[in-house]
């Protein structure tokens, strides 16, 4: 597997190096959207408004939204693009199988996606003049966010295998993801909180907001919940992708865009 990872990492590096405008456009687009939202909110609230830690929570949520969109959208786009260009069959001809190839490709591309998000973070912090608590304890919830996002990515990848075009679904799902990562479910109480934590990404996003925006310490119990949620959605994504894969093979629609 490490051979495949290195090959995918090299592939991602070549793309990143050869087509830098694509990465730069990503950062600028997300930064412009944030700037629009931020300035719009400031204008509506009046000049004297102070957002305080709420703004920090919004920044964390926005970064998470960006990152999640990149992570899960990437997997679905991979399947759609390979299908369009006629390379999907070649991926299927690999003894590693499509699930391993796509997952490895997604993980190998992670470092470059992190660079995009880091670039965005710098731009957003400059715009808002805020500082976030960035410690090593943010790594576990980011890892669970990635795992959950890949679960959702595989789910959409499965849809792309069968229906080929997922652009509209991806566009619509941006709003669902926005809800999942921006809603402060961690501050809710009772059954609504429990129900909220059953949704994908929610516990990880809440934990990350607690650490980065509210300066709280790493809570192992919160992490256990985030990890359980991420594993469950990752497994669900893989399972649904496998079902879609079997369906596509039986219908003869692998590739065939």
């Amino acid at each position: 597997m490490h051979r495949l990872f290195l090959a995918e990492f090299k592939r991602a590096w070549i793309e990143f190096k050869r087509y830098p405008a694509e990465a730069a456009t990503g950062v600028l687009t997300f930064a412009a959207v944030f700037l629009g939202l931020f300035l719009g909110a400031k204008y509506m609230a009046g000049g004297t408004i102070h957002f305080g830690t709420r703004l920090d929570a919004i920044i964390v949520g926005y970064l998470l939204w960006t990152f999640t969109l990149i992570a899960f959208g990437n997997l679905a786009w991979m399947v759609q693009t390979e299908s369009q260009t006629g390379t999907l069959e070649q991926v299927y001809l690999s003894p590693f199988g499509p699930r391993k190839v796509f997952l490895t490709r997604a993980v190998a591309g992670l470092a470059f996606q992190m660079l995009i998000v880091a670039g965005l973070l710098i731009v957003v912090l400059l715009i808002t003049q805020r500082r976030l608590h960035v410690t090593l304890t943010v790594i576990p919830p980011i890892a669970t966010i990635v795992m959950g996002s890949y679960g959702l990515g595989f789910l959409l990848g499965g849809v792309a295998l069968i229906f080929k075009r997922v652009g509209n679904i991806l566009n619509t799902s941006q709003f669902a993801v926005l809800f999942l990562v921006m809603t402060p479910v961690e501050s809710w109480t009772g059954y609504t909180k429990i129900a909220g934590y059953l949704l994908p990404l929610v516990p990880s996003a809440g934990m990350l907001r607690d650490i980065m925006a509210r300066g709280r310490a790493f809570d192992p119990a919160d992490f256990a919940i985030a990890l359980g949620n991420a594993i469950a959605y990752f497994a669900l994504g893989l399972l649904l992708f496998s079902i879609a894969d079997r369906y596509a093979r039986s219908k003869g629609v692998i590739g065939g865009y």
Partner: peptide, 18 residues
């Protein structure tokens, strides 16, 4: 699959950005 190579019609079969 280790013993199969394929060039399929109507497909690029390779990555054109590389």
């Amino acid at each position: 699959l280790r013993e199969v190579g394929a060039v399929l019609e109507g497909n690029r079969n390779t990555y054109w950005r590389f």
